Computed example of a mutant assay.
Amino acid sequence: MNTLKSNLVKMPVFLLFIVFFTSMKTEMVKADIVIKGPTQVFLRCVTFKTDKVIKVPERSAQKKKKEVEKRLSRGGISTKELVEGSEMDLISYAYDFIGKPYVWGASGPKSFDCSGFTKYVYNAFGVDLPHYTGSQIGEGSSVPRDNLKQGDLIFFNTDGPVSHVGIYAGDGEFIHASSGSRKVTVSNLDKSYYNERFAGARRILN
C-alpha cells in the first residue's frame, strides 16, 4: 500500500517533467514508460520533447581501414570512390595515433617519424608513399596554401629544405609526428614557427 502511495506521489512530478519538455521547441521523442508496484501502471507511448541530440556512433577508423583494405585486395573499389569517401576517414584514422612517440626512422604503428607517419596513414587507404620527406613532396599535385583541404600533405623547412611533413586536418590545423614534442600531435599552421617555415603542399587524393 505504501509503495502504491509513493508511486502516486511521484506521478505529479513525472507529469510536470512531461509538461516542461513539451514546451521546448525541439525534436519529438516517443517512449514507453512502465511504473511497477503492487499493481502495474502502464503509460504507453508517452510523447515529450528534448533538446538532447541522439547520435549514432560512427564507424571506427580501424574498421574503415579493414573495410578499405579488403575491397582493395579484391579490386572492388575505384580510385574515384576511394578519394570521394576518404578525406574525412583518413583524418579520423590519423587521429587514432595522437600521442604515439616520435622516433627517427620509425614508420609505425607504435612510433613514427614525420614521413613514416604520413606513409603509414596513407598506406591504410591504398596509397604507397616513400618513407622520405624529400620524396613525398614529389607525389601528387601541388596545392596553393589558400586552397588546402583535409588530407593534403603539407611541408616545412624546419631543419633544412623540405625537412618536415604533416597532414592537413582542416581549420588551419595539421597532424604530424613532431620531433619537437616527441609525439604525434596537432599543430596550427598559422603558428609563427610553422607559418614562417611553410614549404608547400601536395594533394595525394586528387
Rank of each mutant, 00 (worst) to 15 (best):
E67P: 00
L43G: 05
V53P: 04
Y93G: 00
V103A: 01
I33T: 11
E139F: 01
D89A: 08
I91C: 00
S111A: 14
S86P: 02
M28L: 12
K52T: 13
G76H: 04
K70P: 01
Y95L: 11
V53K: 15
Y120C: 06
L43Q: 03
M88P: 08
V56F: 13
Y122D: 01
I33S: 01
A94N: 04
G140Q: 04
G134E: 11
F48Q: 02
C45S: 15
N123H: 09
R44E: 15
D113H: 13
H131G: 01
E58D: 15
F97V: 02
K80I: 06
W104N: 11
F97H: 07
K55W: 01
V29L: 08
T133Q: 05
K110E: 07
T50G: 09
S115I: 12
F97I: 02
D146V: 01
Q136K: 09
P130R: 09
T22S: 12
S78W: 05
T133S: 12
V29K: 14
M88G: 07
C114W: 13
I33F: 11
N123T: 07
S115P: 11
S142Y: 14
K70G: 01
S92I: 00
S142Q: 07
C114K: 08
L82Y: 10
E67W: 06
I91W: 14
I35S: 12
L90N: 03
T118M: 09
V41C: 08
F125C: 05
F117Q: 03
F42Q: 14
D113R: 02
F112W: 09
G75E: 03
P38Y: 15
S107W: 00
G105N: 06
D128M: 06
Y122T: 01
Y93V: 01
N147E: 10
Q136C: 07
T79F: 10
Y102L: 05
E139S: 09
P130D: 00
K64R: 11
F21S: 05
Y132Q: 05
G126L: 02
F112S: 02
P109Q: 05
T39W: 07
K65R: 00
T39D: 14
P38N: 15
D51P: 06
P57D: 10
V127M: 14
D89P: 05
V103T: 03
K25Q: 11
K100E: 14
K30N: 13
M28E: 13
S142V: 09
L72K: 02
D32L: 08
K55H: 10
N147T: 09
I77C: 08
E58M: 11
R59W: 03
F97Q: 02
S73D: 03
S111G: 01
G108L: 04
T22G: 09
T22D: 12
V41M: 15
K30Y: 09
F42M: 10
Y95T: 08
L148V: 06
S78K: 06
